[in-house]
Amino acid sequence: MIAALRIGFPFLLILGVLASPGLAQERPYFITYDHHMEEPGNLEVATNPVIGQARGISTFIGNWTEFEYGAKGWWTSEFYVDSQHTLHDGGLLTGFRFENRFRLLLGEHRINPVLYVEYEHINGADKTLKEVVGFDRKEGHAKPNWETRLEHEREFETKLILSSQIKGWNVSENIVGVKNIHEGVWEFGYAFGFSRPLALAASADACTFCRENFNAGLELYGGLGEWGDVTFKGTSQYIAPVLAWNLPSGTTLRVSPGFGLTDQSHSTLIRFGVSHEFSGFGQQVGKLFRRNRS
């Protein structure tokens, strides 16, 4: 965790100099993706710690720090750095992920499909629980870090994201497929979420605590078994209310207490998120390079 902060803090300082804060309306979900892309040229930086608890397992904090860039109106690119700290065990960086999302239909439709493609290089000590697939279970987090850090996973992950806006509600479904590049079979999972701002119309006054700045919803996610054995049985499943608060400064705060629904799940997963959007980041970086050339 401290290592992640050492890397992240100077980077955030550079961002602060390069770009001004942007003011987007962020989704409240932690796991589920919707069809809304990052605005072109903007960069969002976020950190998302999760506290996990289950009987017989040391309490841990997993964290992913993400850098989300709007490459085009229809294409968003994201880089994640994962880390964790386990009580009575210690902490470490656990790997990285690189993903791209592509909107398949350019206009707004009743259902908007998005293709998600990710490469991840993480080790077995990863405890972000960013996606729950296959027969993932809490016992996988019981081993000590010195042992699990030696298990290296290079995985290819795809998601089909289906998302709709209906009378102020967002309803999103994600179907997840993960394949270890070197071995194993495809593992499957899902995420489903719906959310809505607490007020649909904006108030006329500038305000921090207006209802339209809050977005509340619910997420469901879990494993669906693997190739040849697609099932709910023996999988981890979670239900998690979500709440996001979009501050006028461009920062979004999120919280989500999650609860395990099966014996294979952690009993509670409490997620927090802080994100900040930097407007015009791409243009500012482009200017720097043009200046250096001339």
């Binding site: 605005e39 109106g73 206009g107 102020g168 904006a202």
Partner: peptide, 23 residues
């Protein structure tokens, strides 16, 4: 505003509720 023009870089603002788009 709701659809944007993703090819030209104008983002879709469908994330905003209809009432806010009308405002």
């Amino acid at each position: 505003i709701k659809n944007g023009n993703l090819r030209s870089g104008m983002p879709s603002w469908s994330r905003l509720p209809d009432a806010q788009l009308w405002q």
